[in-house]
């Protein structure tokens, strides 16, 4: 490592922000890709790979991806839930990698849910 200046310290901090957003929380958006057996069989992995690719290309540090199990509606898999901070979650269905890329641009980056792919807004009630 070359000798650092105070500016370099800040640059290094910025460069590692993505990892620490994961570890510390404080992200702007969270995408849950439902990866139950049904989701995986229907191609959820490609959907997730596409999403990760977009996030990498856009060099985002405040969007995180998590996976979860079957969302219950196996017929409409692959499913993904997009949660933007302070907005109700939106579930998308019948996804493929191209649709995911559109959702990334319009909803995650643009802030407008993609109606044509959307299944439902909100979550089920739980106790």
């Amino acid at each position: 490592m070359p000798r650092l200046t105070i500016e370099d310290l800040k640059k290094i901090k910025e460069k590692h922000r993505a990892d620490f957003t994961l570890r510390e929380g404080g992200y702007r958006a969270k995408v849950t890709v439902h990866m139950g057996t049904c989701g995986i069989a229907a191609g959820a992995r490609n959907v997730m790979t596409a999403l990760m690719d977009e996030i990498t290309k856009a060099n985002l540090t405040d969007v995180i991806i998590t996976t979860s199990g079957c969302a219950g509606l196996c017929a409409r898999e692959p499913l993904a839930t997009v949660e933007i901070m302070d907005q109700p979650p939106v579930k998308y269905c019948d996804l493929n990698d191209d649709k995911m890329r559109v959702i990334f641009k319009e909803h995650i980056m643009g802030g407008t849910p993609v109606e044509k792919y959307g299944l439902v807004v909100g979550s089920e009630t739980t106790y």
Binding site: A18, D19, L22, M52, D53, I55, T56, L60
Partner: peptide
């Protein structure tokens, strides 16, 4: 890919 979706802190 440079971005990771999860960090496993062992």
């Amino acid at each position: 890919m440079e971005k990771f979706r999860a960090n496993l802190m062992l």
